[in-house]
Design a protein around this nucleic acid. Structure first.
Lengths: 230, 230
DNA sequence: CTCGTAAGTAACTGACCCGTCAGTTACTAT
DNA sequence: ATAGTAACTGACGGGTCAGTTACTTACGAG
């Protein structure tokens, strides 16, 4: 029964679960580095020093393998984000926590990060990543719509207006966050503190303004024509 | 469309330049809708009701065709952005102009837009898109570093500090812009004015704060400030 | 009318890559 | 030893797709 890690030296055969885990990890790396279309099953197999056929005993198809990898990444990341947000009460702190989580994740798992970033806008590859983006957006929406400790100063009408504006803020926020992290990864000379603080500051401004209802000199001169062709 | 009214009825043959133009346009559409890897040369040829071989008489390879398409998109978009920015003097107006250009472009050329967005983070596909992103970033940097009409209130040291912060602002800005436009494309029920105005507002805040030197209470550890409303 | 040339096409090639299967090796139980 | 099982492999079918080739058709010049 105690076959696991016997005294024998180089062990090539592994129990199912372990092998599967290993393959998932390697697949994540390969997919992250080359992108879905450019990585082939042989690459993953070779990374594990194993034949392609074995890979197919664990995963039914390339798509399924990719989906599984994406699923684990999404679960991990959304888990971290949720925990971080839940641990804070104040909005600024929540933003700070989310940004920190993203930077941490990008640092800890660069391959997973590039995997996500690269495939976020590719519907061809499966809906898993879309889901991540939507969950990220939902986190932000929660953040924005947080019942501010029973703030009686806001009328329901004002809340509705704010909710509408909040929806528009979501893509601005996660867009800037993701972009900042990616940028920072490509500019390692930049101190992480700076990047992180700047992102928090930048994003929090929108929230701040939303909360106080303050606005730019208003939208009178916004758009000139209604070009709604399609 | 058949200018030269040949004796025979429907004219299928075209002069070189015209056909090339047509193929480029169709290729843009196909690449934009399916993405690089999923579109095949036959798709482009079929879209023009033409054989693959003819396509290869105009473009040496799939990669070259794609590069050419990307080149034209990049040229067009950077051109529009440059013109729009140059036409305005004030920073807010410049941001507004850039946002408007992006929304216009995404509306006018949805395929080109998705082409850009989809392939921005794919090095495998050629460096053309990276260039676009960098040029976009450069535009923002220019915007941020604009000599503010000889503002004597700022010392050189302060300018240097600002320059450093400005570099960090760039990815936040274009990230949120691009994200907002993409989001809006997927939510056509949202009035464009709103989305546009919100983007301008959101982005301008960063610039505003940078200019005035105002900051969140600063970088080290911002104790949770009570986010009360007034 | 006829020849030459350019435009256009259908059929083909070669390479690549996903997925499979018959067979082999290591390990366990009796 | 012997049998049984789980992990593993080499080799190949089969489909796809970028790129090529050999052929046909239109058209202008003499």
């Amino acid at each position: 029964m105690n076959n696991t890690t016997g005294g024998t030296g180089t062990r090539r055969r592994m129990p199912q679960a372990q092998r599967r885990e290993q393959l998932l990890g390697l697949a994540l790396r390969e997919f992250g580095r080359r992108g879905y279309h450019l990585t082939q099953m042989e690459h993953v197999a070779a990374a594990a020093d194993v034949s392609k056929a074995l890979l197919y005993q664990h995963f039914a198809s390339k798509e399924e393998l990719f989906a599984e990898v994406v699923g684990s990444v999404v679960a991990e990341l959304t888990g971290r984000l949720g925990a971080a947000v839940r641990a804070e009460d104040d909005s600024v702190d929540r933003i700070r926590a989310m940004v920190r989580v993203l930077f941490d994740y990008a640092t800890d798992e660069p391959d997973a990060w590039t995997l996500v970033i690269r495939h976020l806008d590719k519907p061809e590859v499966g809906p898993g990543l879309r889901e991540l983006r939507d969950r990220l957006g939902a986190s932000f929406a929660d953040l924005l719509l947080i019942r501010r400790r029973v703030d009686p100063a806001l009328s329901p009408a004002a809340l509705a207006v704010n909710e509408h504006r909040a929806r528009l803020l979501v893509p601005l926020m996660y867009g800037s966050m993701l972009s900042m992290v990616s940028w920072w990864l490509e500019h390692p000379d930049t101190p992480r503190d700076r990047a992180e603080a700047m992102a928090v500051e930048f994003i929090w401004l929108g929230l701040d303004r939303l909360r106080t209802g303050e606005r730019l000199r208003s939208s009178d001169e916004v758009s000139d024509e209604p070009p709604d062709d399609q």
